[in-house]
Simulated scan of single mutants.
Amino acid sequence: MVRQFEIAGEPRSAEPFGKGLIHRSYLIRLDTGARFLLQRINTRVFSRPVELMENIDRVTGHLSRMAAETGGQALQLVSATGGGSWSVDDEGTYWRLYHYIDKTRTVEQIESAEQCFTVARAFGDFQRLLTSLPPPRLHDTIPGFHDTPSRIAALDRAIAADAAGRVRPAGAEIDFVEARLPLARVLLDRGMPERVTHNDTKINNVLLDARTGNPVCVIDLDTVMPGLAVYDFGDMVRTATCPAAEDEQDLSKVHARFDHFEALARGYLAGAGGFLTGEEKLSLTAAGKLITFEQGVRFLTDYLSGDTYYPVSRPTHNLDRTRTQFRLLESIEAQERLMVQVVRSLT
């Protein structure tokens, strides 16, 4: 497959790379010493791979041109020999090849509030740079991804079907959702503009300089599509403020660290603040609540449906994930007034 792309040299080795669960990735070394990242695209998750690659091609091209002007770096696709930025093998599998960015690293967990600032600024910068992406509108790679009312409707269907006989043990969690139904529309009714958003703003999707720890570029662009800018901030709150794992069973360990929230807000506004409207800035805390709630609803729906989407290692795995999200949401709610105050002080 590597030979189906325009490379200067001969491939000499390929080894599995990274911890991603969606695509199969390989680090490729050529006889010239050059390195590339080859990926087999998971078309079960991304059922429209051509639209996916058209998005990534446009975004990486735009960011690469802007990086060239400033001396920065950005992800770059390698063109396929037959044209375009992807290749299809004899079995109909889609592949892509990226230039490997040397002297960088990723981390799996936030290590400090300072790191929260760094990562949030990187994602804020990413959004800001893409405000100048020329038309047309990007494709929706996962339609309805942050359509929380539709997620609630899917949960209602799972409750009614009770396919796995799990409604009774999840009674408390179902009641938790019912008590917070108005939260599903907390952002949709604020009249915020559509932006280009990343939609997977975990720290491991920022390449860091291996020596300084400074951000080099944002990676994993599969879910880059139109959305509300604050969705990205909300997902940072969900993934960066909690010290516990997403499937932690000891809920006493689950809480939102206020200093991490404050650092996220400072970093994000430092990167994106120039283009955000006043309503977008004042919606940051609500976004943290919404995305945490929405992810809990998704885990709960999968648990009730018999674990058909998320990989599990125990019967209650998705229920444990649900409880973690809902406990985190309670912690955000308890600190909401202070979080709103700190955002107002920054804006």
Results as ranks from 00 to 15, higher is better:
H146P: 05
L346F: 10
L207V: 06
F5N: 09
R128N: 10
I28V: 15
E294S: 04
N204R: 02
E262G: 10
Y100C: 08
E178S: 11
T324Q: 14
P193I: 06
R48T: 13
G213K: 01
P182R: 13
P135E: 09
D156E: 14
L77W: 00
P311R: 04
L221H: 05
N214D: 15
D302P: 02
F5Y: 05
I159Y: 09
A68M: 10
A122K: 07
E69G: 15
A8S: 12
D57I: 00
T292P: 08
F17I: 02
H146Q: 08
T241C: 13
T322D: 03
K202V: 03
H99W: 03
H198I: 05
T316P: 01
A34V: 07
M53V: 15
G227R: 11
L75F: 02
V237C: 10
D102M: 12
I174Q: 03
F326P: 07
L264M: 11
G288R: 12
Y98P: 02
K289G: 00
A153I: 10
L221M: 04
N55H: 02
A287N: 09
I332K: 08
L75T: 12
D90W: 13
R314F: 13
M1W: 10
D259H: 00
R65E: 10
V340Y: 04
T197R: 10
E246S: 09
L21C: 11
G20E: 04
T60Q: 08
D175R: 15
G124V: 04
G234N: 05
L97I: 07
M1A: 12
I159M: 12
T285H: 10
F17K: 00
Y231T: 06
E294Y: 09
F46Y: 06
L181S: 06
A210G: 02
R211A: 11
A67L: 01
T106S: 12
D320E: 12
V107E: 12
R180N: 06
A210C: 07
L276K: 09
D147P: 08
Q39P: 03
S85M: 10
